[in-house]
Nucleic acid binder design. Structure first.
Lengths: 199, 199, 199, 199
DNA sequence: AATGAATGAGATTTCATTCAT
DNA sequence: CATGAATGAAATCTCATTCAT
């Protein structure tokens, strides 16, 4: 039991090292070596815990998605008022800058989902889950009388996610500040729900 | 002069071969060999025209951007009525499917802009140019009395581009049909301009 | 500590293999492959210990110089009488034939000192060190009353070294026997010091 | 007939280009390309006149030897007095500096004579010819009563050549000025002939 | 006589991977 | 459990070389 726990801990460390290494090298240029070095171990040690680099990165992606979604979901769950939920949800979806590890991981990994079916389905679920969060908030807000939706909640939610993703790339590229993006999302919120969130 | 033309033609052929090879291999897994094979020449022949694979892909990306932008700009220019311009502009910005080469190239290349400054500035211009197209259409539409903008044209234009990009990834992943995306963009058009384009 | 020793030992083995390979291939035609084969390992194994072939050859040159100089210095140090020192010094400076590895290494490497500053300074020290050996012997011999110098010791010493080097090339080319060269150096010794060494 | 003359002229141009290219690249790093570029033609054009780079360099070496020897022989032939012959002969044998093309060519090529029999015999003749020049001068000087030889003329001549070669390398390496070398040779001249040349 | 395009041989180089310790 | 040595596969890269024009 303790053994298994150690294993898990070690894997988590490696996974985190992989995330850090990803920032400087990018997924494309990332070598087993880089991750090992970042973790302070030898490449062979990494292979003791993971089949190969792909497996490690897949798991890292997977856990990244999980962390990202949970953060949002929990952020929303902290409030009863849909307006506050919406505001927090928006905030948690935007990268704090080009060095924000989690969004970087998610976007660097994305091209791989085009060819790796397992990654593709993971990504599908990821997107779906984010849409769900928005959708729930929108429906709640409508029922609370705060939001007036001119379009189906599902469509508005999908639009939120797409907008977010589209702008996310600009933030990661350092071309746009997180604040600008949040402002844009707020503005869309007003257009779609009639409610303008307050910072 | 004829010589130069031959050179250019050959480079264009290789560039196109690179685009095709990209579809099956992805940018990450793309080898010099793959491009050469796709073009029906030896790897050394490719190096005769390009410094290395990176240079070839950079130029391919560059020209891809150019083609993409010109197609949109020309599509819009074919009409006098801003409503028709907007409709065509939207259509030309959405991939026809996962095998649509041009958008694939643009999105596969994207992660590279995070580390290559030259590519980054190319990408900046690319985004800016697309925003401009939408912005012009919006302003024209407003002056023609067809559009009523609740937000600055610039912001709405940026939103269009971000939405498009966010949804584009879903189309390329095969998770969403081009039609769905166009519908979503139409719906945003109504929200932002008061005008719902007709297919 | 033991590790470090292993490393050093392995490097020394490779260096020696390089020397051997040099005899048949020459520095110009020497490939990483040749050295690896001579050492009984794979080319990649050589690169595990050395940056590249140049680095290996540089170190081999460096150590060759060291060995060559030490052999001479020790040979001279074995005697108290400057006449015996001179004789032994001369003997140790002449190649035993075209297959004499050490002189071959030194002379094959020489052209590289024309372009590689690090090698150049190594070579400078090498020459200087040899001149010093002769110079010390000459001065000692003069003080012992065995030698009568018509020219400054430094100049005579430099002449010894130059003569030796000039003749060395003939020996390495197989055009002249070591014996002939030693005789010529003896004859110069008589002219410059008044003392003719006895074999 | 005119044809042949053109051929010869072209080959001579290429040979000279090779000499120039040698200065920057060294024989080891010299590529067909470098020579072609230096001559302002394409690599294929060089191959039209020479079998391969080796053949070109061999001929260049051969002609270099010829030029070098003739210059010395003619220099000596300009005087009747052996003392003046000796002085001029010495002067013509020492490189003017590291960029002196002819000596550079001769010394860069030297390692090749260790493995290429044709080059080896060329080199033998070269050395022999130089010794002959000195020998003739020494014999003449003795008969004129200017020189007193304590050793056979042949040995003294060989010593001159060896000294010259040994010092030549220092000049080419930029470690010694031509003047210093000439002084050293003068000093040897006095020791071996009793006559100290005057600059 | 010479060129420019393209080839293909041969070398290096980079890595993940293996294995004894 | 982890390491360091060494391997071997796979890619690139460099050139001389060929050939049609």
């Amino acid at each position: 039991m303790a053994r298994r726990k150690d294993q898990e801990a070690r894997r988590a460390q490696l996974s985190e090292a992989a995330e850090r290494a990803l920032l400087s090298r990018g997924l494309e240029g990332l070598r087993l070596r880089d991750v090992a070095q970042e973790a302070g171990v030898t490449p062979a040690a990494v292979l003791y815990y993971y089949e190969d680099l792909d497996a490690l990165m897949y798991e890292t992606f997977q856990q990244g998605i999980e962390r990202f979604c949970q953060a949002r979901e929990q952020a929303a769950a902290r409030h009863d008022d849909a307006r506050e939920q919406l505001r927090d949800c928006i905030h948690h979806g935007v990268a704090t800058g080009p060095q924000d590890r989690l969004p970087r991981l998610l976007f660097e990994y994305w091209p791989r989902t085009l060819r790796d079916p397992k990654a593709a389905s993971l990504d599908s679920v990821f997107v779906e889950r984010q849409i769900s969060v928005y959708q729930s908030i929108l429906i709640l807000g409508a029922s609370q009388g705060h939001f007036v939706l001119a379009e189906p909640a599902r469509l508005v939610a999908a639009n939120f996610v797409a907008l977010e993703d589209g702008y996310q790339m600009h933030v990661l590229a350092g071309r746009r500040s997180p604040h600008e993006v949040i402002t844009a999302l707020y503005s869309y919120a007003r257009a779609a729900t009639g409610h303008l969130p307050q910072e």
